[in-house]
Every structure is written in C-alpha cells, then in structure tokens.
C-alpha cells in the first residue's frame, strides 16, 4: 500500500455540503481520476480514504486533510494532477505528501481546530472595542460556560469552557470579527456555532450569532505545547 496525505480547501457554495456528501464526492472524484485506489475488504468494499476532522455544514476552510491509499506506487505530483482534473469547483487540492504507512490516523492525531468568524451586530446595537474587551474579561472570569445541547428528544446542559480557548474579537462598523480555538477529542468537541452563540448569550455581546459566517483557519496536532501541521507529522518527501 502507498499512502498519501492531501491538504484541501472547501469553499462556498460547496462549503454547504455535509461531511457525508463530501466523503462521497471525494470517492467519486478519485474513481473518475482512475488512480489505483485501494479498497477495504468485506461485503461492502469502500475506497480507502480517511478524513481528519468533520467540518460543520456552512463552514469554509482551506485547511482540511485526508489520507488515501493506492495499490500502486504513483508519484505524489501525478496523484495531485489527476485529482485536480476531476475535482469539482469549490474543492481544491492545496498540497500533497507521502505518508509513512504505519503512521496513526489523522482523526486520532488532530486535536486543535482554529476558527475565524464574522457576526453582524443585532439591529440598533453596537459596542466599542473597550466595551467588548470588558465583557470578554467578565466572561473569562466565569467558572463555567454552560449551554444546552439538544440530543434527540432531550435537552442537556453542558459546560463548554474546557473546550474553548484563545477567544479574541475586534469590532467593526457592521459587526465583530472573532477568532477562537476548539479542542478536539475522542469525547466530542464544542461546535463553533455553539461557541459563537455562547458569546452572544452568556457574554452579552449583541451579535446575531445565527447569521455568523464561520471559517476554519487551521487543524493542528499539539503535544506539550508544540503544535505542528498534519502535513508535517508522519509524512515523508
């Protein structure tokens, strides 16, 4: 098996297709490219492609990752060229590297996601940068950031504070531009929309969080306060 890692982007309007729809889109793209893709064994063979972290519907990103396995040794440049020919507009292949076959999966390594967002002011309301910083300061001082999450029929309270860090916001005439990082873990993680809603509700920042435009600005592997890109760890030339 020959394993490759791809860094790709997903921009509007394709940012509005779901993760499952995107998985299928990649499978069909690779089938069209006629690359010798490896299949899983079993009754329902699947293309051996594995993805990094699920990107929420409606979120654009230039920092998404996937690993794919081929049965033949094709140069990384050729793999990239053949995929680019078949990739629909809105998805873009940014970079490709070979991966050491025994390297752990993307999903198990990636543990930090960075987001940037823009949210408009609620009609007739606005804050100065000073007022905004003050509210952020008060928010940070709270012990927990409790939100409610709907799970099927029941609503359960959950503290999202441990999963969010590095919140920064700048005011503009039309709204705020903000940035934060979310911790990804096997026990689930905070959704970016939840973080922004929390800023509106608990931080009393008068933004329309439902109308926020969100972009993912990075996925990283962080260990002992050192962060590196998935394109570095486990890859070879």
């Amino acid at each position: 098996m020959f394993r490759y890692r791809i860094e790709y982007g997903k921009q509007a309007p394709l940012s509005f297709i779901s993760h499952l729809e995107m998985v299928k889109t990649w499978e069909r793209t690779i089938r069209r490219s006629r690359l010798p893709i490896a299949f899983s064994s079993g009754f329902h063979p699947h293309c051996r492609i594995s993805f990094g972290s699920v990107l929420p519907v409606g979120t654009a990103s230039d920092f998404e990752y996937l690993d794919l396995e081929l049965t033949e040794n094709v140069s990384a440049e050729e793999v990239a060229a053949r995929i680019r020919e078949q990739l629909p507009a809105g998805l873009s292949l940014k970079a490709i590297r070979r991966v050491v076959p025994e390297s752990p999966s993307l999903m198990s390594m990636i543990n930090i996601a960075g987001y940037r967002f823009y949210a408009p002011w609620k009609t007739g309301q606005q804050l100065s940068q000073f007022e905004l910083e003050e509210r952020l300061h008060r928010l940070r001082a709270r012990e927990s950031w409790e939100i409610t999450r709907k799970r099927k029929d029941r609503v359960q309270p959950i503290d999202i504070k441990p999963g969010i860090r590095q919140i920064e916001m700048t005011v503009s005439a039309a709204g705020v531009i903000g940035q934060f990082e979310l911790l990804l873990g096997p026990s689930g993680s905070v959704r970016p929309s939840e973080a922004i809603e929390m800023l509106e509700m608990m931080g009393t920042i008068p933004i329309d969080s439902k109308a926020a435009e969100i972009e993912r600005i990075g996925l990283w592997i962080e260990r002992a306060e050192i962060r590196i890109s998935p394109m570095v760890l486990g890859t070879s030339c």
Binding site: P13, L14, F16, I17, S18, E21, V57, G58, P88, A89, G90
Partner: peptide, 8 residues
Amino acid sequence: PARYVGVE
C-alpha cells in the same frame, strides 16, 4: 443546503 448549491 446541498439541494440548492447548483454546482454539481
């Protein structure tokens, strides 16, 4: 939304 993206 994927119903209405129109760039299939």
